[in-house]
Amino acid sequence: MVDQPNGELPKVLQILARPAGLLPLGIVLTQAVRRMARRRPTLFERLDEHRHASFLVEPSDLDFAFVLVPDGEQASVRSYSKRALPSADVHVKGPILMLLGLLDGTFDGDALFFNRVLSVSGKTDALVALRNTIEDAELKPSDLLGVTGRGAAFLDSAVLRALASARRVVGAPNMGAMP
């Protein structure tokens, strides 16, 4: 574990994180984002014109990536093999735990750039807008997976706990690193 740089997933976890098939993940995530847009339509107002931008998110320790277009109820998420990455308005690359840290509020917009773990190219303003939108959304894992009620509360605390301990295991910071 000591040799694990920048919070990258150990090989064992990488294998576990490999999706069963590339296509279904995209469909599941697309549905999740659209479901959220139906439930909370004002959420996407923050994105302004950037709701039409495409975001290529590439976990450096997994062998697939996905492209998100966060256009409310017309949102789409498609997954791609690393061998054939499409072009996109924004390309963000980093260890999956750091990328997930952006989702659950562990890292913030400044840490995104300053912690020097994620690399970003393309339309930086679109990424900042997306990050700030996610920030205000107070997203929980259950929102993405469409789980509600008591199951949601259980799922959220379990997933967040698991993420936090995974970060500890791989030595990634659990709070936004200061510039």
Partner: peptide
């Protein structure tokens, strides 16, 4: 300072 910072950071 830090209106661009995340809520986790701000709370702390």
């Amino acid at each position: 300072e830090g209106r661009q910072r995340g809520k986790g950071y701000i709370a702390e």
